[in-house]
Amino acid sequence: MTAINVHGSSLNHHILSVLVQNRPGVLARVASLFARRGYNIYSLAVAPAEEEGMSRITICVDVDSSPLEQIVKQLFKLIDVVKISELDPRRSVERELLLVTVRATAESRHQVVELCGIFEGKVLAVAPDAVTLSLEGHPDKLDDFEELLAAYGIVELQRTGRVALPKLDRSARLRAVNSPNMKGQVG
């Protein structure tokens, strides 16, 4: 089975930006491919892309589980997959959203809110013994925030999984994996 790994930036991961035809079952196809071939997904985000009828799936892949090359090639065999780009974390913009409810009594609330302020997060809701916060940013920043909040007691936490796009000024370095020899013209 595909393991969804716990968060932690020490993992050896790569980001694949996969453009797919937005057809029923496309996410299931991608997910079952990962399950069947024993590849591990670190995080996954799916939403409609700029082009009508297309969606973009951002998959963070644990490459310790299998060589990235095989993962990409097997993904390409899915008929609904139109394009795959491997995004080098150093040359791409990554963002993630975190929602968290933290224990915060009258005494500790100001500390939690101060932390939230330092990280430029938002307070979404307050209760007598807890607050709900949101934070958007680079996944590493979210990791740090999560770690610092842990001391107060995390009641519930949800992260979206990362989305990414190539950095504009370095777009030439985006390594599109669909070279002509892998997926070329109409045969």
């Binding site: 797919v20 035809q21 899915l78 008929i79 609904d80 997959v81 139109v82 394009k83 002509p180 020899n181 892998m182 997926k183 070329g184 013209q185 109409v186 045969g187």
Partner: peptide, 18 residues
């Protein structure tokens, strides 16, 4: 048919250099 399958373009001709 081909336009309806933008993700399906099998390569049939081998790379000349290879």
């Amino acid at each position: 048919v081909i336009a309806s399958l933008p993700g399906y373009r099998p390569t049939t001709k081998g790379h000349p250099r290879m």
